[in-house]
Amino acid sequence: MAFSAEQLAANPLFVEALQAFAMQLRGRYDEQPRLARFLASHQRWLLSQAAFALHLEYDPEEPNSGLTTTRLREIVTTGNAASRNTVLNFLDQLVSYRFVKIAGDPARRPRRFEAAEVTTKAMFGWMVANLAALDGLDGGSRAKTLVDKPELFKLIQPQVARRSFDNVQWREPPPRVAMFLWREAGGLVMDELIRRVRLSEEIGGRFDIGRIDARLIAEQFMMSRTHLQRLFRKAIDENCLQWQDETKKSNLWFTADFLAEYCRWQAVKFAIVDQVFEEANGKLAAEAECAASHRNAAVGEP
């Protein structure tokens, strides 16, 4: 039985699962910093997931299927996640960075795009990391199943993308979460903070996250130091973070209520991933069983 968002948010192990997930994502950033940073805002997450779903759904028998500007714009603008110009700029950047390529004749209209190998690998790895985080909660084998049966990915990713996009709770994060996630590279910063939370050191509804070196973090994530310091100041004003020493302003607390708020938001997406995985795995197993039955019947025929 797949986890619900409520079950995940209430699970005492969920924060640890999010920390493990954040560390996985940090490792992927270290491997492919340009790609990871490019997708490290919630708007670009939505755009990239929708674009990759269209790529996987391409059907040669359907002339206008696959990833095209028009089809991506239809999905994204319907949910008010981005403007038409943002979609166009997003695709132009994907081509410029060689994360996607134009399929077939460039003069053909509408132009269709295909994901590059590095993008497909990153998307697959992201899905494995999500499933591994869920496995950490119940000792499951979702991640191993996907690795062993990569054909599941084509069933899972488009549904995760579409259901996530259709879910307003995920598409529109609560204001304090959005303060981080709607900013460029904000997802990387949030993962870094979550990774640093010391769960065993809660004091007065706050968790120690140690010393935060804005200069170093900005350098690591290729951000403006001024931009990052402004974000931290706003997070402190909104009671997401607190200085441990108002005079020195070096070490920080991460407030428990903000952590709970972030967990509730992440739980929405993880519940979608779990539900889609369960459905896709069941479908694949049923198809395999049906095929085996047909083979056995054929062997038994006179």
Results as ranks from 00 to 15, higher is better:
Gly186Trp: 07
Pro106Asp: 13
Thr255Lys: 14
Leu216His: 07
Asp166Trp: 07
Phe153Tyr: 15
Arg215Glu: 12
Asp213Ile: 10
Asp92Lys: 14
Asn251Gly: 01
Glu279Tyr: 04
Tyr29Trp: 14
Ala129Trp: 01
Met23Pro: 00
Leu241Ile: 09
Tyr97Cys: 03
Ala133Lys: 14
Phe113Arg: 12
Arg37Thr: 10
Cys290Ile: 02
His42Ser: 11
Leu91Trp: 09
Ala185Trp: 02
Glu201Phe: 00
Ala280Met: 01
Asn130Asp: 11
Phe113Val: 05
Lys234Gly: 08
Ile156Arg: 01
Arg112Ala: 10
Val15His: 01
Ala143Gly: 04
Ala20His: 12
Ala122Asp: 09
Cys240His: 02
Gly186Pro: 11
Tyr58Phe: 09
Val197Met: 15
Phe232Glu: 02
Glu246Lys: 10
Tyr262His: 15
Pro33Tyr: 05
Glu192Cys: 08
Gly210His: 06
Met123Gly: 07
Gly204Arg: 09
Val168Thr: 12
Thr69Pro: 00
Ala132Asn: 07
Phe258Asn: 12
Pro33Trp: 00
Leu39His: 06
Ile236Asp: 04
Thr77Ala: 01
Asp92Ala: 11
Asp191Gln: 14
Ala9Lys: 04
Glu6Ile: 07
Leu54Lys: 06
Ala10Thr: 04
Arg109Leu: 10
Ala115Gly: 06
Ala291Pro: 04
Gly136Ala: 11
Arg295Gly: 14
Gln244Gly: 13
Gly140Lys: 02
Asn89Met: 06
Glu201Ala: 12
Ile102Thr: 12
Phe124Ile: 04
Ala36Gly: 03
Pro302Ile: 13
Ser41Cys: 14
Asp138Gln: 09
Tyr29Ala: 08
Trp170Asn: 08
Leu181Ala: 11
Ala297Pro: 00
Arg108Met: 07
Gln242Val: 03
Leu35Pro: 03
Ala2Thr: 13
Ala297Leu: 06
Cys290Lys: 14
Ile272Gln: 06
Gly104Leu: 09
Leu25Met: 15
Gly139Leu: 08
Val76Leu: 14
Glu117Ser: 14
Arg171Asn: 02
Glu219Gln: 13
Leu72Ala: 04
Arg111Cys: 07
Ala271Ile: 02
Ala185Glu: 04
Asp213Gly: 06
Asp166Tyr: 08
Lys234Asn: 13
Phe221Ser: 01
Arg211Lys: 13
Val299His: 06
Asp274Ile: 08
Ser41Trp: 08
Ala22Ser: 15
Ala260Val: 05
Arg109Phe: 05
His294Cys: 02
Asp30Ala: 13
Phe124Pro: 00
Arg176Glu: 14
Met223Phe: 03
Trp182Tyr: 13
Val76Asp: 02
Phe21Met: 10
Lys249Phe: 07
Leu181Lys: 03
Gln32Val: 01
Phe232Pro: 00
Lys149Phe: 11
Phe113His: 11
Phe3Ala: 11
Leu35Asn: 00
Asp148Gln: 13
Ala256Ile: 02
